[in-house]
Design a protein around this nucleic acid. Structure first.
Lengths: 236, 236
DNA sequence: CACCCGTGCTGATCTCGATCAGTTCAGCCG
DNA sequence: CGGCTGAACTGATCGAGATCAGCACGGGTG
């Protein structure tokens, strides 16, 4: 996390102290047991160090919409803290390692180091940009474009933290999770994945995504990654 | 805007000065001409005083996904400033009145008044919560539920600024805009509206939405407004 | 060992909502 | 005045993706 934020902000000694103080509260959580529950109040936020997590909303009829996946370096549940009541749930996809950030720590950060506050706001904006792009996909792209775009985005985000490349990445998600993220049925995800494999543009097998033809894939999905790596002027 | 933020933060004199300094730069813009364009750099943000606006993304093939509508009291283009490059466009739906907020003003706010910074972050989080709920609708609700939920949310947001109630609200949106927001065709929006009118739960006619049966409507749409009015602990 | 259970995978059928192709009506402008 | 445009509205047809039903496999766990 420090590495990641450090890319965007030149950190001063007091800022570094503040951040490293946080490192005391390292925790690990196992895959599958909810970390944050929809409707819960006064949650802590977390910074994800290793493993994948997933934030989702449950509808009363039992349907699930996955809002986003978090990978190492991402915040978990920042919005739950800011709004005080969590409007979504978070579950680790794999076993994860996190550090807890209390509400009071955030207050400290805002009072003492406006630059770090700006960094947090930047991170929140980037998260929102990801959600917005997700919305565009679900609203206006067909199943294949949607899936391709989603996996490309995930690949680009992972590449930023050294866990992926234009060749592919390791991916612990099941076809059911992909379905709930993309607003499709698992059956249909399966079919679309088969078509992409047969067309030689993408293979998802045994927990690994391979971009068989990165150029054709980005063209097909109309993938434009600018929203992922731009840097705000507040942080220059 | 001051009224709205004032609900959430007890403002100190220097904070009030800072805010009222901003009021110098009042502008008006006409309906239909883009205020911010996708891909543009170094945009200003705006605070909306009167009228409605709409933020959307355009796909290369000409399709449009409307991400959110903004009503009086909302920020416009906050994310464009924070990410430096705008990942979306904004167009006034009606003639609007705004005040411009420069990037440098935001820097000021962050440096001088951490509480106002927290308020801005809170506003951004609430915006994100709205987008997330929108995503859930597009991903997992059928056309009727989606439309009902959307109009209820809009009504609740308008009620917060005194422009709507459980009886209904004035709504300048065309069926085409509703379609682009909800990921449906305008034709289908029309049919669904007719069904709701015939079922006596909702009427949308001549620029006015009437909730004919608010209780039945919230039940049908499974509308839960908590995410709209919760207040963060940073602001207490 | 047998027995689950989760995940991947597939064929057959159904359906919601898109698309196409119009009509009507209310401004608005020459 | 007639012609034009944009929005609301409607019927007929089509198709992407859901749903249902089922098989195969591999890795736990009694």
């Amino acid at each position: 996390m420090i590495r990641k934020l450090g890319v965007f902000v030149v950190l001063s000694p007091p800022e570094l102290t503040l951040l490293s103080d946080l490192q005391q509260r390292r925790r690990t959580y196992v895959a599958g047991r909810d970390l944050v529950d929809q409707g819960q109040a006064d949650q802590a936020a977390y910074i994800l160090h290793s493993g994948w997590a997933c934030s989702y909303k449950l509808l009363p009829d039992g349907q699930r919409q996955i809002v986003d996946f978090q990978i190492p370096g991402d915040f978990l549940g920042l919005r739950s803290v800011l709004l005080r009541i969590s409007d979504h749930s978070i579950v680790p996809v794999t076993d994860i390692e996190v550090t807890e950030v209390q509400t009071s720590d955030l207050l400290d950060i805002f009072a003492k180091t406006p630059r770090l506050a700006a960094a947090v706001l930047w991170a929140a904006s980037r998260d929102e940009a990801v959600v917005v792009e997700h919305l565009v996909g679900v609203g206006r792209r067909d199943a294949a474009e949607r899936l391709a775009h989603f996996l490309l985005e995930l690949g680009a985000r992972l590449a930023l933290v050294g866990m992926g490349s234009k060749a592919g990445f390791d991916c612990p998600l099941s076809q059911y999770m992909l379905a709930d993220a993309l607003g499709l049925s698992a059956v249909h995800i399966n079919r679309v994945l088969r078509q992409m494999r047969e067309n030689g543009i993408l293979t998802f097998r045994d927990g690994h995504v391979t971009f068989d033809n990165y150029a054709r894939l980005t063209e097909f999905a109309q993938f434009d990654p600018t929203y992922l790596d731009e840097l705000g002027p507040l942080l220059k």
